[in-house]
Design a protein around this nucleic acid. Sequence first.
DNA 1: AGCACGATTAACT
DNA 2: GTTAATCGTGCTC
Length: 195
Amino acid sequence: MNTPERLPRKFYARSTLVVARELLGQRLVRIEDGRRYSGIISETEAYIGMDDLGCHARSGRTPRNESMWGPAGYLYVYFTYGMHWMLNFVTEAESFPAAVLMRAIIPQEGLAEMRIRRKNKPDRVLTNGPAKLCQALNINGKLDGADSLNNQSPVFIEKMPAIEDQYVHTSPRIGLNTVPEPWKNKPWRFVYSPD
DNA sequence: AGCACGATTAACT
DNA sequence: GTTAATCGTGCTC
């Protein structure tokens, strides 16, 4: 069986909405101590530029959101709610701040270790949230600003067959409680529902 | 220096 | 359905 290729940088250097849609069905991989932990991406959200008032880039370039201005395919990992990490892949042209948030994956490899990291919660809630998948894959701020296309990268995405539109739906982004319209209800969340 | 709140989660009623 | 946990960040004074 062939080793899947990683998505090329050109994949990420496009419209964030297209990248967020097409990342559904692709395989998120975390390598740690030579072991693989992975899952199929099943939920994403797009955050697009300084004009998007739901995006961290809205308040300009700061140490926290610096990675969003970097090259496509780099990681933007940030800390929130005093306890949670979130994983994003940077998109579009360098110096344009945009990224796709990983909101859920369907676990594939490394389930046993994921269960331990997730406190033996039921499998159905192992990686069905942005902070949950970071916990299961042990993703934290040390990975912020890393290039997922570097050969040594411990986090990257492997190419898998595209998902048909029939299995995809969109909705407003989650958790933007105090974000004004029209940004609050932009249908920039993408969900892959198999079956 | 102080403060309000967050791209959430888990544990409640 | 509601709410506590928990603290870095950005904004105001």
